[in-house]
Write a protein that binds this DNA or RNA. Structure first.
Lengths: 257, 257
DNA sequence: GCAAATCGGTTCATTATTTGAACCTACGGT
DNA sequence: ACCGTAGGTTCAAATAATGAACCGATTTGC
C-alpha cells in the first residue's frame, strides 16, 4: 500500500461516531506510527481535507470535501436528483425515505427526506453505514449483485442488531430471491427495532447496482394497504432515479427494462 | 512537498471546466511524471476519490467525496443551514442567491437558490470560483479580511472579466471601505455583464470571514427600492447564517455584535 | 500536591518508497 | 506506412517515508 492510500485511509476513519479525532486516536485506530500520522494529517490539513479548530487540537473534515462534492454533483447529479425523488416518495407514502450508495462493500446513506404527515416518523442521519443483511436497502442491493458479492456478504459474521435481525444465511437467500422476483426488498426491525423498511436498487450505467432507495416506517403503521402503496411508489421512484442519473436496469429486473 | 500533497493536488485540478480528465491531461496540468500521476490516480481510485467509467478512460471525482461531505455536514452543518437561509433570502428579494466559502485564497460557490418570482433570473453553478475583486462576494470577503490578504489579492494581476470590471486597486480599496461601513459590498457587471450582485460576509468561530452570502439580480431590475430591500435582507441573512453555524462577527462589524 | 500517564508535536539516522526515462501497445489521422 | 498521442508498465537511481526516542504541556490518579 502506498503512502497516499495510507493517508486516505485516515479519512476513512471518520464516521458518525467519530466526527472529530485527536492525533492519538487516529494513531491508535490506524495502527500507524504517530509521527507518520502527524505528517499525513498536516498534509491533509494543508489541502483542506481536514481542519483543526480554534485551540482545539482535534481534527475534523475540512471544507475542501464540500467543494469536491459539489463538483462530483456537477459531473453526476446523484444527490440533487435523489432529493427530488425522495421528496415525492415521501409525499406519496407519508413516511421517511432515504438513498444510499455502495462503496467498498458498505452501503452509506447520503440523503433523506421526512414527511410531515404523521407526528412520529423514522429518524435518519446522513453518512450512516447500513448493514447489508439487516436493512431493506442492503437486501435490495444484494438481490441484484453478483454471486461473489452475496457470498462475501453472507459469509462474514452477521451482526444481530436487534432480537429480530435475521442472521440465517439460508433464510436471507430466500429473502433475496423474493426481492429478485418483486424488485423490492424488506426488513422488519432488523436494523432498528420498530422500523419496517422497504427498498429498491438503483443501477449504474453498467447495469450493476450502485445503491438503494428506501422507505422506512414504524412497524405499527405498516398495514397491508400502506405496504402496497410503498412498493408501487418505490419501484417507480427507483426506476426514475436510475434513469435520470444515466443508469440502466439489468435484463432480469422486474418492471423496468 | 510530500507525496500525499502531490496526490491531493491532482484532485485540485478538477473544476467546472474540467469535470473529467484523462491521464495525459492530468500529467500536463500537474507537471509531474506520467508514471507518478498514474500510480497516484490508481491509489485515489482505490480509495473512491476518483473513478473511471465503463470503457472511458477519463477520470472523474468518485463517490467517496459525497460520503465525506455528508460527514463534514454532520460536524459543521454549513450547507443545510445555508440552503434554508438562501431559500428565504430568495423569497424576500425575488432574485437568485448563493453562498460561497474561502479556501486557499479562492472563493468557491457551494450552493444557491432561485426565485420563481421573475421569468428571467441570474443563473448559477455550484463549485464555481468567484473572482475576489470582481464580485460582490469577493469584495464583501476582502472588506473584513486582514490587510495582508487584501494586499495579496489586489497586488495580483486583476483580471478584466467584462468591460465594466473595476481593476484599479485604489478604487477597489474605496469600495472595500464602503463595504466596511455598511456591511454589504456590491459589484455591477464586474464578473458577468448585466449582473448586479450584493454580498455580505459570513464569519467563523474565530471572528474571521469564512465566505460570503450574495444576491445576484439583472442590472435592469436593480432599482433603488430593490437595492434597499436586498441590503436589509442580506445583512439579516448573513448574521443569521454566521450565528447558526457557530460563528461570531468581529467587533467592528456594523449591525451584528 | 506530586508522580505517572497522556497529549500534540519534533528529531534524525535508517530504510523503503517514490520517481522518471524509456518502452510497449493501441488507435486515429494523413 | 508513418506519425502523434493515448493509457499503461518497467526498473535502477534517487528521494522521501518511517519510527524509536525525545520534549514540553496538560490531565489524571492517588
Amino acid at each position: 500500500m502506498g503512502t497516499v492510500s495510507k493517508a486516505l485511509s485516515l479519512l476513512a476513519l471518520f464516521n458518525h461516531g467519530r466526527l472529530e479525532m485527536g492525533l492519538s486516536e487516529l494513531t491508535r485506530l490506524s495502527g500507524m506510527n504517530k509521527a507518520t500520522v502527524y505528517r499525513m494529517m498536516t498534509e491533509l490539513q494543508a489541502a483542506g481535507f481536514v481542519e483543526q479548530m480554534n485551540g482545539d487540537r482535534a481534527y475534523r473534515l475540512g471544507p475542501e470535501v464540500l467543494r469536491l462534492a459539489a463538483l462530483r454533483e456537477a459531473a453526476v447529479p446523484l444527490l440533487s436528483v435523489s432529493r427530488d425523488v425522495l421528496r415525492r416518495l415521501c409525499d406519496e407514502t407519508g413516511e421517511t425515505s432515504h438513498m444510499s450508495i455502495q462503496r467498498n462493500g458498505q452501503l452509506t446513506t447520503l440523503t433523506h427526506a421526512y414527511s410531515s404527515h404523521h407526528g412520529t416518523r423514522v429518524a435518519m442521519e446522513d453518512a450512516e453505514i447500513l448493514s447489508l443483511h439487516a436493512t431493506g436497502s442492503g437486501l435490495a442491493f444484494l438481490a441484484f449483485s453478483s454471486e461473489e458479492v452475496v457470498e462475501h456478504a453472507l459469509s462474514a459474521p452477521l451482526v444481530k442488531h436487534t432480537p429480530q435481525t435475521e442472521t440465517d444465511p439460508e433464510r436471507l437467500r430466500q429473502a433475496l430471491a423474493e426481492a429478485q422476483r418483486s424488485g423490492v426488498a424488506e426488513s422488519v426491525g432488523g436494523f432498528e427495532a420498530d422500523v419496517h423498511s422497504h427498498a429498491a436498487p438503483i443501477f449504474g450505467a453498467d447495469q450493476r447496482p450502485i445503491g438503494a432507495l428506501a422507505v422506512a416506517a414504524p412497524v405499527s403503521r405498516m398495514t397491508v394497504e400502506l405496504k402496497s402503496r410503498v412498493r408501487t411508489a418505490l419501484k417507480a421512484a427507483a426506476l426514475d432515479l436510475t434513469q435520470r442519473t444515466g443508469g440502466f436496469c439489468p435484463p432480469g429486473y422486474p418492471g423496468g427494462s
